[in-house]
Amino acid sequence: MIKLELLSETDFPQIVTWVNQYSRDFMVQWSGKTYEYPLTVDQMKAHYSRGINSIESDVFIYKIMDDGRFVGSVQLCRFNWETREAVVGRFLIGEETNRGRGIGKKALNELVRIGFHQFGLETIKLNVYEFNRQAIKCYESVGFRKSLYREKMYQDSNGVWWNNFEMTLRKEDWLKQFKEDIVAGE
Rank of each mutant, 00 (worst) to 15 (best):
R24E: 13
D25Y: 01
F26H: 09
F26P: 00
M27Y: 04
M27C: 10
Q29P: 07
Q29S: 14
W30G: 12
G32S: 08
K33W: 05
T34K: 03
T34S: 14
T34F: 14
E36F: 03
E36G: 13
Y37D: 10
P38K: 01
L39R: 00
L39P: 02
L39M: 05
T40S: 14
V41T: 09
V41Q: 10
D42P: 09
Q43S: 07
Q43K: 05
M44I: 04
K45N: 05
Y48R: 00
I52N: 08
N53Q: 06
S54Y: 04
S54V: 03
S54P: 06
S54D: 06
I55K: 15
S57R: 01
S57A: 15
S57Q: 04
D58Q: 06
D58N: 13
V59Y: 08
V59I: 11
F60D: 13
F60L: 06
I61C: 09
I61N: 08
I61T: 07
I61Y: 08
Y62H: 10
Y62G: 06
Y62L: 05
Y62Q: 08
Y62T: 06
K63T: 00
I64Q: 03
M65Q: 10
D66C: 09
D66H: 01
D66W: 00
D66F: 01
D66M: 04
D67R: 01
R69P: 13
G72N: 02
G72Y: 01
